[in-house]
Write a protein that binds this DNA or RNA. Structure first.
Lengths: 189, 189
DNA sequence: CGCGCGATTGAGTAATTTCAAATCTAGTGG
DNA sequence: CCACTAGATTTGAAATTACTCAATCGCGCG
């Protein structure tokens, strides 16, 4: 039960069969098991990933070995350590499976070839980057304006599926509170 | 003493004189005074802005009339309420001058004309959007991993100029702490 | 049954907020 | 030059919020 890459792209730009064939040649299909790493902090970042099914977390591990979740990536999302991916530097974040996950992989060469070979795809990627930027700004805003309880409510109302699919500990790590605090918050809603 | 738009663009893609002339026709130059608003919450968003000189803040005002700073925009930065700009909806953020400021304004039509008329500019804008996305993610990460003192130190080490140019109250509002807390933090560094 | 993981609860501590008051500073007008 | 004012900053004290550490609970699974 996978999202179709073509449908995903055609939400933004329409493609001929020929064009889509060109696009498709740039991607490699890969399967990962729960807890597998797609990107490991300190290693090079070979790909940006389009999630067909499953669930990923983009994390950073701090000096005290505490894990922080920068983003979840579910079906139909793109994710990577974008800075390291574009710059060719070592990853400062890891990308790990919360569930068995199927992704399409795109290399930087593929990315550039896609942009220069098919204008529409550059436009598509521009729209995607803008959406990512906007989403990140929204999250910053929720850190500024909302306390832990409100952020928790926002999260589960926006992504009800997450509540079912991931342990509360992971939600706490995304919200920036301890698991104990999150537990106390959810007990008296 | 302005940044040159052409230099700014040519950091990423090179342009012929002819191409730059085409680009330039899309922008309007505007001057604003300290405290003026470029975007007002609840109003339509006509432009995205490239800052030539001065300093802006992108803010959201919450239910208790408390102001939160989502971003500063200094020389050489692009800023807008991007969601409202792209979607043509009402602004959920305001954009206001912290100093007298000169900007180049680009409408959505201009943006689209630029993208379709000159491929290189679409690539340029894609790079800019990616940088914006990455910067926003970094800020999320600093909320997750750092306490107020650490965020404050990061901020002034990354943007020492801000320390001089804006009142501490504004820095507090960017960092997500009360001005009193920020004052106590800076007193015992 | 018993293990292991995740979730909960309690108690004490640390960080931050709020509200109020006191200071400080730069600019203005006399 | 001084007095005055508005804005910005600092300080104090009490209240709130979240954290840590430790113990306990609940449940699915071999």
């Amino acid at each position: 039960m996978h999202i179709s890459l073509r449908d995903h792209i055609e939400k933004i730009v329409s493609l001929t069969d020929e064009e889509f064939a060109f696009v498709q040649r740039h991607f490699i299909l890969q399967h990962f098991k729960k807890n597998d790493f797609l990107i490991i902090e300190g290693n090079p970042v070979k790909h940006t990933y389009f999630v067909l099914s499953g669930l990923l977390k983009l994390i950073h591990t701090d000096a005290m070995a505490k894990e922080h979740i920068i983003a979840f990536a579910m079906e139909d999302w793109w994710e990577s350590d974008f800075f390291a991916f574009y710059k060719g530097t070592k990853a400062t974040m890891s990308l790990q499976c919360l569930e068995d996950t199927t992704v399409l992989c795109l290399t930087l060469e593929g990315y550039n070839s896609l942009c220069s070979g098919l204008h529409k795809m550059e436009h598509f990627l521009l729209m995607k980057a803008n959406v990512g930027h906007i989403a990140a700004q929204q999250r910053i805003l929720s850190f500024l304006t909302s306390n832990a309880r409100e952020r928790y409510e926002e999260l589960i109302s926006r992504y009800p599926a997450l509540y079912q699919r991931v342990p509360k500990t992971q939600l706490a790590s995304y919200l920036g509170v301890s698991r104990e605090t999150l537990s106390r918050l959810s007990s008296n809603l």
